[in-house]
């Protein structure tokens, strides 16, 4: 018995050491959640327009267009569920908030299914939400780890790709179809409605406008979209709107965004595209 306990303990000890090292190392790569949450804690009352969502927001909607009081709280790869949870946490900290803008992906929850960002993404999320032993055994190590905030976020919350300006990486796109992440309407519409309704309710209760936009996509990407998929987006918006008023517009095939120079890859706008898109939102919704 002693030998068994010893063997098991050694393996678990090595596991513990490995997880501790990982726990310390992860913040060194940038803890966007933590940094963004801290910004909102400290400057929440200065924010009047909040951009939430995933890379369609971080590399899709230029926060600068909305003025100094706009902040991009989005994180690349974030799924609707986490957006909802973070909004729930952050809304009470922004007493002057007037509008929340959410760019909605055609695939809705696709990244939740495909889990491309994997453990690192979830890991950072759990730590920033202070989810500890109950749900995530190693969240508590966060308190022992180095202080985060290693990122140099801009005042608008754009991520570390370009700390002084916006979040667009320096990519170029040749306009060809990229085979990975093909469009697919694979998500459960009901789940999307649940999450969006929850966000709409939270905003409604605080007198904040909730604006959902489907960003433009290049022609190569649109080829893979189905009519059902397009209709689903409207169904979702109508379902939420029936309970709480939201602003909704689908820009997927918008004629103003057909030039491929407006895209940095086959499903993300370039900086120029993101600026143009932000201007359109501003005009269309009177922000």
């Amino acid at each position: 018995m002693k030998r068994f306990v010893l063997d098991t303990a050694i393996v678990l000890l090595i596991v513990l050491v490995a997880l501790t090292v990982i726990d310390v190392a992860v913040p060194l790569h940038g803890q966007e959640y933590e940094a963004k949450a801290n910004h909102i804690k400290e400057h929440g009352n200065e924010i009047s327009t909040l951009i939430v969502g995933n890379s369609l927001a971080t590399a899709g909607v230029d926060a600068c267009v909305f003025g100094d009081s706009c902040y991009c709280d989005a994180i690349a790869g974030e799924v609707l569920y986490y957006t909802m949870k973070r909004l729930e946490q952050d809304l009470p900290r922004m007493s002057n908030l007037r509008a929340v803008i959410l760019p909605l992906h055609y695939n809705l929850l696709a990244y939740q299914y495909f889990g491309k960002l994997g453990a690192h993404f979830i890991y950072n999320y759990y730590r920033s939400m202070n989810i500890t032993l109950d749900t995530f055994p190693y969240g508590y190590l966060y308190r022992l780890a180095l202080p985060s905030g290693k990122l140099h976020l801009s005042s608008r919350g754009c991520d570390y790709y370009n700390p002084q300006g916006n979040s667009w990486p320096n990519w170029t796109w040749n306009g060809e179809k990229q085979e990975e992440n093909p469009p697919n309407q694979c998500d459960e519409v009901d789940i999307a409605i649940d999450y969006l309704t929850a966000m709409a309710r939270m905003c409604h209760e605080r007198g904040v406008r909730f604006i959902v936009v489907v960003p433009p996509f290049p022609d190569a990407w649109l080829e893979g979209c189905t009519e059902d998929g397009m209709n689903n987006l409207q169904i979702i918006a109508d379902s939420v709107n029936a309970l709480y008023p939201i602003g909704f517009h689908n820009y997927m095939a918008d004629s103003q965004f057909r030039d491929r120079s407006l895209y940095m890859n086959w499903n993300h706008l370039s900086h120029a595209g993101g600026t143009l898109f932000a201007q359109r939102i501003k005009e269309d919704f009177g922000l």
């Binding site: 393996v11 678990l12 090595i14 596991v15 490995a18 997880l19 939740q112 889990g115 994997g118 453990a119």
Partner: peptide, 18 residues
């Protein structure tokens, strides 16, 4: 062996699916 099992454990933990 200890390292191997620990590595498998950690990999399982970090690469687990939804």
């Amino acid at each position: 062996r200890y390292l191997l099992f620990a590595a498998l454990f950690v990999a399982t933990y970090f690469f687990r699916g939804a």
